[in-house]
Nucleic acid binder design. Structure first.
Lengths: 189, 189
DNA sequence: ATAAGAATTTGATTTATATCAAAAATTCCT
DNA sequence: AGGAATTTTTGATATAAATCAAATTCTTAT
């Protein structure tokens, strides 16, 4: 199982030495939780890094008592830490499972240790961050000037199963609109 | 001068070995250009990485013949490459100087070489990407549900000099609104 | 210093989305 | 399976921002 995961990662990013994989495998924990479980609660430091073996999660924060969803992750995705370590800022995010899920958990301390011990692992980690940057830039382009219809369509294209797996309100929030508006857009297709 | 720059970087991110700094200093080029100069033209691969010693730049792309500005950078900022190397995608961005500027230029090939040769440099580079991610997430939060007024105010707070240095139309574009709307918001203060 | 060009502001109108409220549909639980 | 709870849709209205057009102010080059 662990081998399969690293094969996927190697395929997408780069090769990793057996030593680094061993070090990593000694530190990770495979965890399983039910739908609605909170991986990170607001106000607590986000000290862990997750990889989704199976399942789905959303990240959200509260603004004026409303949940604002700003990240979805599915099978084979990472859940990047929401904390900025450079400024030691607390996470203000919740991360909630949208389905029963199996995840790999790694503490930030361990992640940093592995990076320190293995240059190739740090390289891999750097590449995963580049990918996150690419995704975030796409998302900004989407929010900045595309119509809601366009944003919705490209979300569906990116995650064809999202409609059946994620509540409409969360999708609307992610797109930066109200649930009513999304419902109307969806009806007008 | 080069020493000063690395002192700034060290202060913000982490220490770097003299060997890595030396390697880096052998590969960089210090360039100087006038306002309106284009560092990257659309359609050409963005193969360089810049650091601003002095000046200001904007990154933009064209959508339906309109310029969409999606990044500003000032003194001591990086200009991250707009290319996603994992998928080898072409840049569709222009990067234009908003003022006469002095920059450090490093080709992506050289950057990768330095990272390969010096683990500590790769570490530094990884930290700079984390910071970019933090900034992009802030920007998404801003576009997703904050009012235009709030977005404008926090931009001014982050870059107090921006109003006098950057054309209104570019700021409006960055905020995801028309220039006319920004003008009205500004008038209502 | 001044004319030409560029950037910004103002005005009138239209359009997209938010808001508030309620009905309908779906999911969840025992 | 059947009622409660949740989620989604629909409706009426209000609001923010876009659009198009023109006037004004600011910059730049000669």
């Amino acid at each position: 199982m662990i081998e399969d995961i690293f094969e996927k990662i190697t395929e997408e990013y780069c090769e990793i030495s057996p030593e680094a994989i061993f070090d990593w495998s000694q530190r990770i924990k495979i965890i399983e939780h039910k739908k609605k479980h909170l991986l990170i609660k607001e106000g607590s430091y986000s000290t862990k890094f997750y990889y989704i073996i199976k399942g789905a999660v959303k990240a959200y924060y509260l603004l004026d008592e409303k949940e604002i969803t700003d990240w979805f992750a599915f099978q084979n995705d990472f859940i990047p830490s929401t904390t900025n370590h450079l400024i030691g800022q607390k996470s203000n995010h919740y991360i909630e499972l949208l389905e029963d899920s199996i995840l790999i958990e790694l503490t930030n301390t361990d992640l940093e240790e592995i990076c320190k011990n293995h240059h190739d692992f740090e390289h891999l980690y750097r590449l995963t961050l580049s990918k996150v940057i690419y995704q975030l830039r796409e998302r900004i382009a989407s929010l900045q000037f595309r119509t809601v219809k366009q944003r919705y369509d490209s979300l569906i294209e990116l995650h064809p199963t999202i409609e059946s797996r994620v509540p409409l309100g969360d999708i609307a929030s992610y797109l930066g609109i109200t649930q009513e508006s999304l419902s109307r857009i969806r009806a007008s297709k």
